[in-house]
Amino acid sequence: MKKDSIPQDESSLSSKDMKEMCYAVDENGEYSTALSSGWKPKTIALEVTMEDLNERIENAKKLVLEGKKSPIVYFMELSRMDWSILASYMGKRKWIVKRHAKPKVFKKLNDTVIKKYAEVFEIEVNELKDFNENS
């Protein structure tokens, strides 16, 4: 990459006033560094990933409202986690956490476990207990 072709596209980096460093060659073919504000292909890849993520979140919400899954599934997706990561944060086996995704099992969970989930998701306990349309 030539120094003058280092991309300066708009990206999410600007939301935090960030720029990333790149290595590129100058007119004499020597390497040095310069800053980039972002690159469109990367922004697109991030956008596609975020869209997929939002779809997963919406889908999870639907399943919870329909009573097919417990709110844990929604907050897991919202926190960009999968079963392994959630199990790891909970300090429990994956199959146990997966069981908590069943509404029937979830209803019987004791307050300590619910509180731990709330801490992991960084939410209030009642957001888990009283999940509704506006959640």
Partner: peptide, 9 residues
């Protein structure tokens, strides 16, 4: 999308 992110991000 994942390949691009792993590769460039």
């Amino acid at each position: 999308a994942q390949i691009i992110r792993m590769q460039e991000e």
